[in-house]
Simulated assay, not measured.
Amino acid sequence: MELVKKHAPITGEQLAEYLGVSRPTLRSDLSLLVMLGHLDAKPKVGYFLGNAYRASDEAMQRLSSLKVREVQGVPVNVPDSLSVHDAVITLFTENADTLLVVNENKGFAGIVTPKDLLKITLGNAGATSIPVSMVMTRYPNIVTLMQDDSVLDAIRKMSLHQVDCLPVIIPSDEQSPYPEIAGWVSKSNIIRLLADIAAAPDLGEQDL
């Protein structure tokens, strides 16, 4: 595909020569790519990129250009004094997978997940009154994003660290060691974004 993109229109013989294979070896592959719409072919002219490839290429370019600030959502923030009992209730009422914890100055202090809450409550009847500050993962031991990071960086971090959401922060200043929470990027954000990008070429074609 990269050869066709660079040299189009290009003949089957030229492609075979670039790849160091015979023309018959490529015939079935070229036919399949034409059938799928990734390539188009004109007799006595050669092969060039098809509509399906151009659409997917445009989608990838759009994804590559997006910044975190364009897709971040509004997080569920809770104070570090909130009890584990109330944190569990908040998870259910907000339908959230993660809670972002803020201190009394509204600085980002940590995160709490269902797994954190489960660990402290199993076999511990009095655990529900413990504040979330005792069970949270503390900043800076948390993978975070900045608003100008790319969405692709966010996807890579989620995959590498196997997390469902990443806090988006504004760096701290000299007055406070804790950053400000700007938002978060969750797997749900990413799934909706990819669905919108995938649907965009179809919507464009309907407008023509």
Rank of each mutant, 00 (worst) to 15 (best):
E94R: 15
V68C: 06
E94Q: 14
N103M: 11
N95G: 10
K119C: 08
L117S: 02
H85I: 14
N103S: 11
T93S: 13
S64C: 12
V112I: 03
I120F: 04
T113P: 00
E70A: 08
N103Y: 02
S65K: 12
T93N: 12
S64G: 05
A96F: 03
G73Q: 00
E94G: 08
V84Q: 00
L63G: 02
D86C: 08
E70T: 04
F108Y: 05
G73D: 01
I120G: 07
V76Y: 03
V71W: 02
T113D: 05
L117N: 00
L63A: 10
V101S: 09
N103A: 09
T90A: 15
V84E: 09
F108D: 08
K67D: 01
D116T: 06
S83A: 05
T93Q: 13
E94L: 01
S64R: 14
G110L: 07
P114K: 06
V78G: 02
V76F: 04
D86S: 15
I111M: 10
L63C: 03
E70S: 10
F108H: 00
K119T: 12
P114T: 06
I89K: 11
D116N: 09
V76W: 03
A87V: 10
G107P: 00
V102Q: 12
E70I: 10
L122Y: 11
N105T: 15
L91C: 07
R69L: 06
A109W: 01
V71I: 13
T113C: 04
F92E: 15
P79D: 03
G107F: 00
I120Q: 07
S81R: 12
R69T: 06
S81H: 11
R69F: 09
N95F: 09
I111H: 05
V68P: 08
R62H: 12
L82Y: 00
T113R: 07
V71F: 04
R69Q: 11
G110I: 01
T121G: 05
V78F: 04
V76H: 01
F92R: 15
D97K: 12
N95C: 08
T93D: 13
A109Y: 00
V71G: 00
G107N: 06
K106N: 15
P75W: 03
H85D: 15
S81E: 15
K115C: 10
V68F: 01
I89H: 11
S64L: 13
D86V: 13
Q72S: 02
T113I: 08
K106H: 15
I111E: 06
E94W: 05
T90D: 02
D80I: 07
V68M: 00
G73I: 03
L66Y: 03
S83H: 06
T98C: 12
V101A: 13
N105R: 15
G110S: 08
V68N: 06
Q72W: 04
V76D: 03
R69V: 09
V68L: 05
D97S: 15
V102H: 09
P114S: 05
T113S: 11
S65I: 11
P114A: 02
G107E: 09
K67R: 14
I111F: 07
A96P: 05
S64I: 08
I120S: 10
R69K: 12
I111T: 09
N77M: 15
L99Y: 04
K115T: 14
E70V: 01
V74F: 10
E104W: 12
V84H: 02
P114H: 03
G73N: 06
V112E: 08
V102S: 11
T113K: 09
L100D: 07
V68T: 10
T90C: 10
S83R: 07
G73H: 00
I89F: 06
L91H: 07
L100M: 12
